[in-house]
Amino acid sequence: MTEEVNIPGYDIPPEMEGQVTITALDKIYNWSRRNSIWPMMFGLACCGIEMICAATSRYDFSRFGMEVMRPSPRQSDLMIVSGTVTKKMIPQIVRLYNQMPEPKYVLAMGACASGGGPFKEGYSVVDGVDKFIPVDVYVPGCPPTPQALIHGLITLQKKIDKQSIKNVRWYSKDPVEPIPIPLLGPDLMDPRDYALIKQYGTEKLAEDQQVPAAEEA
């Protein structure tokens, strides 16, 4: 019996294997959630325009129950990070993410949001939004066409289908900690890295002092 339940008849992503049991209740729960994902209205860069295209005349993702794009994080289920995330913007993005109520999902749209994109080598670009907030689906492309974005959304729906009420994080007993908001110092600073930054600073200072000394000698 349990065997049967454990093999739901479709693929389970490797990272979730072994923790998933899909029941009838889950099916209803997931069905209702997957068909009313409200994305946050929030465009960052070029990809944001393609996201708007996906919402307008030709592609119209309201066909998936996503017509209500909410400018407020409090009312949205899905953050589409559509474009280049810069160091100046990431504190706001983390804050918005923290403000979204559970269950929440993040979709990284385009090369920039996934891993830095063509501007990765630059000095003020974050090399992937997943360095700060957990990402559920990555949509490659620069920019992904609206159809590619919708494919990403369908991929997200598939992920939702495989979740179970029993072990989703928002029903667990422990409270979900908000993500610490990065700060803008001489460069972007993640509060979780403070000890490392301090150590690095001391080492670098020592190195800098050594070099002129060596040169003099």
């Binding site: 160091k87 891993g115 830095g116 990765k120 080598e121 000095y123 670009v125 974050v126 090399d127 360095k131 110092g185 001489p186 460069d187 972007l188 600073m189 993640d190 890295d193 403070y194 490392l196 930054i197 301090k198 690095y200 600073g201 001391t202 670098k204 200072l205 020592a206 190195e207 800098d208």
Partner: peptide
């Protein structure tokens, strides 16, 4: 390689010598 893999913070950041965030 991914550029961040050779950065001590695994991120696109760098700090001046002697910098102490605290």
């Amino acid at each position: 390689i991914r550029a961040e893999d050779s950065n001590p913070f695994n991120k696109n950041v760098d700090y001046p010598g002697g910098f102490d965030p605290e």
